[in-house]
Design a protein around this nucleic acid. Structure first.
Lengths: 391, 391
DNA sequence: CTGTTAGCGCTTTCAA
DNA sequence: TTGAAAGCGCTAACAG
């Protein structure tokens, strides 16, 4: 009840503006929306009145009338995962050009939370949704069924026709695993995510394929399924170390679990990379600060965001078009954690140079040349300064 | 124009439900809002009709009619700063209890972006705003002037009466600096943020006070003002090292700049903590993974979020109440980067135990006993396991 | 307890 | 080019 008198005074409306400018509300509305067919004099009077009255348009009323809003909901699976930082920037940059505002919803790898935000996006009649689904395909269905424009990002929803932006997970995992093989590791383990999540499955598959290609035996003994979080990675690594024959290298399929795995190795006094090599999937910020610095499969996160946003704008303007999947390339970034031989890892081409991705998968659409992927803020500090001061 | 026929079919409304259930729209509305005064039979019929028609309430229409929404905007200054991760969780948990949904807006330390989101929050008539202002006090004014419930977080807006949640910045900085003094460092520098931001000023003041209390001379030569970002920290550190008399320790007033400063030290081959001690303000995730692990002043981020959300709910229910400021305690977390003597840093009480904060400032309101501050996910993995495996 | 009815603030035909 | 008027879907008096 107390909420009723929340905003003491009534907000000023286009009626107030119309009265002051001595025009009709339609004219005010036309000025507001930049319709050209308004007499310059009237338009000026209207604008002045808006200023005088400190008029603030009511987007709620507008949305109700127009049956659409100018808000996108971006439902991410874990706000704590740095993966989403530049992804969101990519989305925002495109959204702004297209006249949309972006609001983030933190799904937190929690199906209930995710459901709540999907419900909210639906109820608020948002203009579109970009979602990194943490499971439950029915959620995506709930969105698409109502005609809500949706783009799935990072993870492939099962059995739903929806625009999707992914990276070449299998190929990235192959590169990582092949690199460990090449570095001379013998028993290479894999810590992957929940079976219901496509990235977990695909990255595991890449690992297995690379092993097979190298003539190694592929065994489930060296595979652990965790939860894509730090704890999970820690425990999975602990479990691997407890095994009868522990691995001498591990490929971890996401950034947070990689951190957990390395912590476990540190705590167990297993020396990286000598006693155990490590390659992670997806960078962490400050990967080069960590000792030993972490080798990772890097993703063009900013461009993932841009690609998703582009798909969403297309979907909004043309709801009938067939849904499509965009796949971007990953690159292997070799740092210290996967190189046994003492010496600078710089010898290996990094940053997705031509040598880093020799086996580009067929059908991969390259919307993002590596050169643009790196142009944007990625959390790496002043590279000139760093390189300059390095002998 | 194409957007007009976006959602092919018209959405079902309470009229459709009313017709099917053979009641009036008011009854449907009452059922929807859980008003108790509805005949159970009718209510059941209504609910069944809603199910049959797959009815989705239109929050836009409801908001327009009720003159308020159930959305909070949380405008954070940098989505890439891990500081905000558990802060947001704290906000969300309280918001949910109070029946609000939280949307995040990424101000990105960019006044234009921040302005856009404030405008959006105003236009969308959000129920409230929690903001970590990156400057411009006028922005907060724009919010409060319209009667929008607002809580400022982390940073004290200048000259505006608004509910605020802070930490004891001066005290935290004093602890950090005093600790460096005690560790035997002689020339202790400070890298702080922009002068317009309260935290930068207060943490610098704490540094100066501690120096003075220790009988050291306080000189501007050892102070650098950067931008609270990683690059800034890197460059400020480089500038300190270039000075005629470089420092042998540095207190850095935020997490991102600490990372930058350490990178600079690494690149310059200055050994931490032997040649240069480092203490940062605010933790980074994986601070213990970084070699040397970083000593930091830790903030109860989750509880900061909870406190802000509580203030906001109070403000919403009672717009007339006087605005207040809640200050939470920080704690010094000593790790390797600030301890010259070789040996385990564990000797020092960590985690804000009673010994860590002996000089608690007067007037500090302790809404968050340290024990609750740690109960929640802070990104630290399975502590039991870690401690168990450490000798 | 239930229904009728009048808007919330805005956009958009339709007529002038 | 401008204005009058009809709603968008919902809630909340007010009557019954």
């Amino acid at each position: 009840m107390s909420a009723g008198h929340r905003q003491g005074r009534r907000m000023t409306t286009i009626y107030d503006v119309a009265r002051m400018a001595e025009v009709s509300t339609s004219t005010v509305s036309r000025v507001l929306n930049g319709h050209s067919s308004v007499d310059p004099d009237l338009a000026a009077r209207v604008r002045q009145a808006m200023l005088d009255l400190d008029y603030r348009p009511n987007a709620v009323a507008r949305s109700l009338r127009r049956q659409r809003t100018s808000l996108w909901a971006v439902i991410i699976s874990d706000i704590g995962n740095p993966f989403f930082t530049s992804l969101v920037r990519g989305i925002e940059d495109v959204a702004q050009e297209a006249g949309f505002s972006v609001v983030l919803c933190n799904g937190d790898e929690d199906p209930d939370k995710e459901t709540r935000y999907v419900t909210a996006a639906l109820a608020e009649r948002m203009a579109g949704v970009i979602i990194s689904p943490s499971g439950r395909p029915s959620l995506i269905n709930r969105l698409t069924e109502t005609g809500m424009p949706v783009v799935a990002i990072d993870r492939q929803p099962r059995g739903v026709a929806v625009d999707t932006v992914l990276v070449d997970n299998v190929h990235g995992a192959e590169m990582a695993t092949a690199h460990l093989v090449d570095s001379g590791y013998r028993r290479i383990a894999c810590i992957t995510g929940p079976r219901r999540i496509s990235t977990a499955v695909q990255r595991l598959r890449g690992y297995q394929q690379a092993l097979r290609a190298a003539g190694r035996t592929v065994t489930e003994d060296l595979v652990r399924y965790a939860d894509f979080r730090e704890d999970g990675g820690y425990r999975a690594m602990a479990s691997l170390l407890d095994a009868a024959e522990p691995p001498d290298a591990v490929f971890v399929t996401n950034n947070l679990m990689t951190v957990g795995a390395v912590e476990c190795l540190l705590d167990s006094e297993v020396v990286v990379p000598t006693q155990c090599g490590v390659v992670g999937f997806d960078d962490i910020p400050w990967a080069h600060l960590v000792r030993p610095s972490l080798s990772t499969v890097t993703q063009p996160t900013y461009d993932l965001g841009r690609a998703a946003a582009s798909l969403l704008t297309e979907r909004i303007t043309n709801p009938a078009k067939a849904s499509s999947t965009v796949t971007l390339r990953t690159a292997l970034q070799v740092r210290e954690s996967s190189v046994r031989a003492v010496g600078p890892p710089d010898a290996q081409p990094a940053d997705g140079g031509p040598g880093a991705a020799p086996t580009r998968s067929p059908g991969v659409e390259d919307t993002c040349p590596a050169i643009t992927a790196r142009r944007h803020r990625t959390g790496a500090p002043a590279p000139r300064a760093r390189r300059a001061s390095r002998p």
